[in-house]
Design a protein around this nucleic acid. Structure first.
Lengths: 212, 212, 212, 212
DNA sequence: GATGAATGAGCCTTCATTCAT
DNA sequence: GATGAATGAAGGCTCATTCAT
């Protein structure tokens, strides 16, 4: 990769970060391209040399975020000695991730839905699959080590993801009601621990979910 | 209520339904007031005799939806003989509700956030509180009848709500995928049944959540 | 005139008065037809049975105002024993009149200028001529009785009118600056007394105006 | 001032002039932003890079006009050897100014009256005060040199201003008639010459105005 | 490569006027 | 005669995107 390309990549990331910062406190539509340019200390037109469109920039941010969270899951979860701890970390990571990105994913959906670009969305979807695969690995290990109920991993992964996302969305929906991440995480853990973690003594076969 | 008022109310609902139909397939911002007018077979200006603004229309739709779901929860859940069944119905109702309205709630948030009208939002929030209270009743009954773990009802209610919402959001987020409501509900039930339902034999005291 | 016609005329005036009241505190364009209807305690559509258009209503108000001021000039000024007093009264009447109507005249101009109706304006113009004629009579008497300089009455009338109007407009222009009508009138009188009133002793032939 | 700023300033003025041209033949409200853009040979959106709103553009035009007339009064009136001539020039200048701007001032009032922007109006008012101060200087000189009656300058200034404005407004009110500026000016001069100019021989103390 | 001036489609909203009841 | 629901043209303004410099 030439110096040129490197520089370009660097700037691209720089702009994406600036945009991300802005999106954190306002909605996607409330942030104008000009705002982003200003925050990134670039001219408005310059942005279009790095991104085809505002939506493309959004997709890039999403990809970057997904890439980062994937790395984190890969490293932090596999580093845990206890599969329970691995799950714990997975949840914490996901919570943070969704907190930062749900808005943007929804905005992305909003704009990609009916409209143009055939493949921008595909790239994002690909990364999402990767993240799902990683989550499944964590769960699989839990199952192998008899800590998690032996149900369909994909379902378990989906469930975990959805639950976390649900708490995040809720803390955002109408007034946010100063939701405390730690309390949320504790609640999630409680639900999950008695929900998908193997219950040493008791009857855990209540669910109708297709266990393997 | 005079015939006039009745008619007015009827039309108001009619317009709201037309708008709702449109919002179901596109995002709030993608649907123009003109689209709504056309769908409702009214002139654009006519809408403004029923709603102060596009946002007001949105608030109305939200209120109506909340009102309906509250009634449904009240009637269907209390009609259940088994508290487990009551919870089941609660979840099913909430799932349907969130499926229909998350988008709109988020759009509402987006538009009300920093901006104007002081009290339109208040009305919606009030209804949300009512819904929460009703959910808590269902859970309280479950606790009384020793079917649900004796934890803080508010937390349990929040958890249930969040989980359901999470599944809904997820089925919507990027590609809507093939989310089958029934599979989702089953999964939710599984998670919850082993999560907040009292576990007859086994150790259910694993969670750190403050039980009463 | 039948009872019907009488009633119609009465209502017409009633509406016009309501409108006038509203125009007094807001600009012509800021007052909607609906506002007027409400103030007049009639339905919006009803107004259109009395007036062809909002502009027509305006014209009517103007005519009525002109009619009243003409009567007043005719009665009050001719009743004055002293021609100086007659002029005084003329000025006072005009001041009040312009205060009440300049806005409306200007609004009328704005709307009639480039636009339609061929004859609505004509009616108003006619009344304006009548008022001018009456003013000229007052001045003519002054000239005859050697109290006013023997200049062209039309010019004198125009001058008087303009001067009064100027003070009124000024008191309205940007902030009105709580202009006191009495102070204005005194100032006007001062200007006029030394300007168009015969100056008993001194040299009054300074002006280049074509005296008769 | 950089070239950029200069160009920007130039274009701003260019647009303002285009708008002014349009306002001269139609009312403020009859001219749309799009009309102005077309006249200025710019896109509609471009205007908003120079002016916050249509009202802001109006304020700018007013300020520019006031600035110009202030300069002209300052230079032309003080250049006159004779105080009578100075007054003459003042009147002529004011006449032209009001002819060009009364409409706009009134439109400005209409729009600023009850509504928003706290300080746009303030700027205009400031300039108006400056113009008033300059007029007073001219009159003061006349008083010092015993050519103008020794009355309160502020009143005299107001009177002069009002009178001129009255003639202008009148020539505009309903049909614009055939108002010949020269005839108007001559009439104004006649009125004033015998009104506020010192009358060498005769009795000039008729007025009740508070002379100093 | 970087810029920001220029663009114009498109949005929400207002309001004089019409017309079926 | 009286009404007010319905209308839709028109207005001001925003903002993603382009392009000449």
């Amino acid at each position: 990769m030439s110096r040129r390309d490197r520089e370009k990549e660097f700037k691209k990331k720089y702009i994406a970060e600036a945009a991300y910062r802005l999106f954190a406190s306002s909605s996607y539509e409330a942030v104008t391209v000009e705002d982003i340019a200003r925050e990134a200390e670039f001219g408005k037109g310059t942005l279009y040399q790095f991104f085809e469109s505002k939506d493309d920039l959004l997709a890039y941010i999403l990809e970057e975020g997904l890439d980062r969270i994937c790395s984190e899951i890969a490293s932090e979860c596999s580093a845990a000695v206890d599969p329970r701890e691995a799950l714990n970390r997975l949840i914490t990571l996901q919570y943070g991730f969704h907190k930062d990105f749900v808005h943007l994913f929804l905005a992305f959906k909003r704009n990609t839905d009916d409209l143009p670009n055939p493949d921008i969305a595909a790239r994002v979807r690909l990364m999402l699959d990767r993240k799902a695969a990683l989550s499944e690995q964590v769960l699989e290990r839990g199952i192998r080590e008899r800590v998690i109920i032996p149900a369909d991993v994909q379902k378990l992964a989906r469930a975990t993801d959805c639950i976390v996302k649900g708490f995040v969305i809720s803390g955002v929906e109408i007034d946010g009601a100063i939701d405390d991440p730690n309390k949320d995480l504790e609640l999630i853990r409680m639900v999950l621990s008695n929900g998908i973690l193997m219950n040493t003594g008791g009857d855990k076969s209540g669910g109708t979910a297709d266990r393997q």
